[in-house]
């Protein structure tokens, strides 16, 4: 057993709910979120001894989660190759413990490409700055800005389509006058 097992266990005990929640927002599925966190924690455990600044563990785990989730999503490209594996039928849809009211903003966030979605989750759920988000995503601050900007534009447009955001708000934002 590695000498840092105790430290690692304490970290998992303290942070597991927060990590699974972030993973849920990235994946939209509770089981996939657990899987993603397990995968990220496994890699973190193996790298624990090399991470000098233990204060940065959270950022490290989140970075692994985002990378891993992007890789999973890319593997959707392979979904076609797997499609003979999957017989379509009525799927049991995951229901959170509390039956939620319909949340159309969440439904639209779920349709964003993974990197835009990750940027949105880190900025608006984790309340990270653009610089912190860039560090987790492994990209420049400029890229974070453009990812978030594109995501917001997409969400505005789709919400306007659904009649949820007024066209005036949408057009104002599009003009950059907000």
């Amino acid at each position: 057993m590695a000498k840092w097992t105790g430290e690692f266990s304490a970290y998992v005990a303290a942070r597991k709910h927060a990590l699974v929640r972030t993973a849920f927002l990235l994946t939209g599925d509770h089981h996939a979120a657990e899987d993603l966190v397990q995968s990220a924690l496994a890699k973190t455990y193996l790298a624990w001894g090399k991470i000098r600044d233990k204060g940065s563990i959270d950022a490290y785990v989140r970075r692994v989660m985002v990378n891993e989730h992007t890789a999973w999503w890319r593997r959707a490209w392979r979904r076609r190759e797997r499609s003979t594996d999957v017989l379509p039928e009525t799927h049991a849809v995951y229901q959170p413990p509390e039956a939620p009211e319909r949340d159309e903003v969440w439904e639209l966030i779920s349709t964003l490409p993974p990197k835009q979605r990750a940027a949105v989750v880190l900025r608006y759920y984790e309340d990270m700055t653009e610089a912190e988000t860039a560090q987790v995503l492994g990209c420049s601050v400029g890229t974070v800005k453009s990812q978030v900007s594109r995501a917001l534009a997409t969400l505005r447009a789709r919400l306007a389509d659904h009649g949820i955001v007024s066209m005036t708000t949408y057009l104002t934002a599009e003009d950059g006058t907000r």
């Binding site: 266990s9 998992v12 005990a13 597991k16 709910h17 990590l19 699974v20 929640r21 972030t22 849920f24 927002l25 509770h30 979120a33 657990e34 966190v37 397990q38 924690l41 959170p96 413990p97 509390e98 939620p100 949340d103 903003v105 969440w106 966030i109 949105v120 989750v121 608006y124 759920y125």
Partner: peptide
């Protein structure tokens, strides 16, 4: 919306 969705989620006991 994100906070509302996230607060319903908790980790399973055997995650570690």
């Amino acid at each position: 919306s994100l906070n509302n969705q996230a607060r319903r989620i908790s980790a399973s006991p055997d995650l570690a």
